[in-house]
């Protein structure tokens, strides 16, 4: 299979070709490196929107409604939906897509599920590579959905141009919200399920947090708070227009390009980590390291291992 032909077909709108490209990007290889090189040339234009929040806050349902509203504005949209991998079987049940299936046949919407796989950095790398692919193929908006737990997750969310943090009424007090560590990173805070009791109270708390400076002002943008009820279709247009507002803001203030650069630099770091760690794991499994360690002390073993790793990594042909 010729990867350049796949890329051409994907640009012309072939979902099958794009689906295949994304699979190639799931782990570093000759092909994935060649593709990324190509993507960087073509991409850099898409608006990346991160969506995070506690499990059960209605992220997928909200995204589905947002897709409808954004499609009315004429945007093409790609979604990267991240779901956790079972730590026991290493398998995964990817269910985010289920709530967005109504958009499955829309030619201007592309939904792809990714599992966290329990590999260090593996999730972020796959997700970031997919963002590059969607960007290069020419999607206007790329939505990344994630569970918002753990440092890797925060890291990837930080690479989004616009970040939405979804919360819901009655999920514990302010302390819980602060503990989660996600209350400092949003550009837009969405109080979903606001048709429920206690919504007013939670909304007041969020407002208070914003006024007292608990919610951080980033790059001169004061975070916004919106009440929604995704299931009832309430507040969706407002969310979408605030996202547009934020997009204009970061475009005017050159934050857009800064974020793009940060994202690519971060991805480079993850690629390096992945190349080293994957090969290191292979060496452990093959017993190579045990042999080496028998004959050498810690320091000498370390240096020898790094040299061997470099030799293995160089075998990846990037022509």
């Amino acid at each position: 299979m010729n990867i350049y032909k796949l890329f051409d077909d994907a640009k012309r709108g072939s979902k099958r070709s794009l689906g295949r490209l994304l699979s190639i990007l799931e782990s570093p290889s000759n092909e994935s490196f060649r593709l990324l090189k190509e993507f960087v040339k073509h991409g850099g234009k898409s608006h990346v929107i991160g969506i995070t929040g506690i499990p059960g806050s209605g992220k997928s349902t909200l995204i589905s409604k947002m897709i409808s509203a954004m499609r009315r504005k004429g945007y093409s949209i790609a979604i990267v939906a991240i779901d956790p991998t079972s730590p026991y079987s290493q398998g995964a049940l990817l269910g985010d897509r289920l709530r967005m299936q109504e958009h499955s046949t829309d030619p201007k919407v592309f939904i792809r599920s990714v599992s966290t796989r329990g590999v260090k950095g593996g999730l972020s790398l796959a997700a970031l590579s997919m963002i590059e692919a969607f960007d290069a193929v020419g999607y206007d908006k790329i939505i990344v959905e994630s569970v918002g737990v753990g440092q890797a997750d925060i890291d990837i969310m930080n690479t989004a141009h616009t970040l939405l943090v979804i919360t819901m009424p009655g999920v514990g007090d302010e302390i819980q919200a602060l503990k989660a560590g996600i209350m400092e990173i949003g550009d837009v805070y969405v109080l979903n399920k606001s048709d429920k009791p206690e919504a007013a109270k939670t909304f007041e708390y969020l407002k208070f947090a914003l006024e007292t400076g608990e919610l951080e002002i980033k790059h001169g943008w004061t975070p916004r708070i919106v009440k929604t009820s995704a299931i009832m279709g309430m507040g969706i247009d407002q969310v979408v227009s605030i996202i547009d507002e934020h997009y204009n803001y970061i475009r005017e203030n050159s934050i857009f390009m800064d974020k793009l650069r940060d994202r690519r630099l971060f991805m480079l770091k993850l690629l390096v980590e992945s190349l080293f760690l994957d090969n290191l794991d292979d060496m452990y499994r093959s017993g190579e390291i045990e042999e080496l360690f028998k004959a050498n002390d810690y320091y000498t073993s370390s240096i020898k291992i790094i040299e061997l790793l470099l030799k293995k990594i160089r075998k990846i042909d990037n022509s």
Binding site: R97, Q101, S104
Partner: peptide
């Protein structure tokens, strides 16, 4: 395995489209 469940009452079009996107 990684399993994607698309929910009930799907059309063949929706299922095929999902299969291609998810590869």
């Amino acid at each position: 395995m990684e399993v994607i469940y698309t929910g009930i009452r799907q059309t063949p079009e929706q299922v095929v489209s999902a299969a291609l996107q998810e590869d």
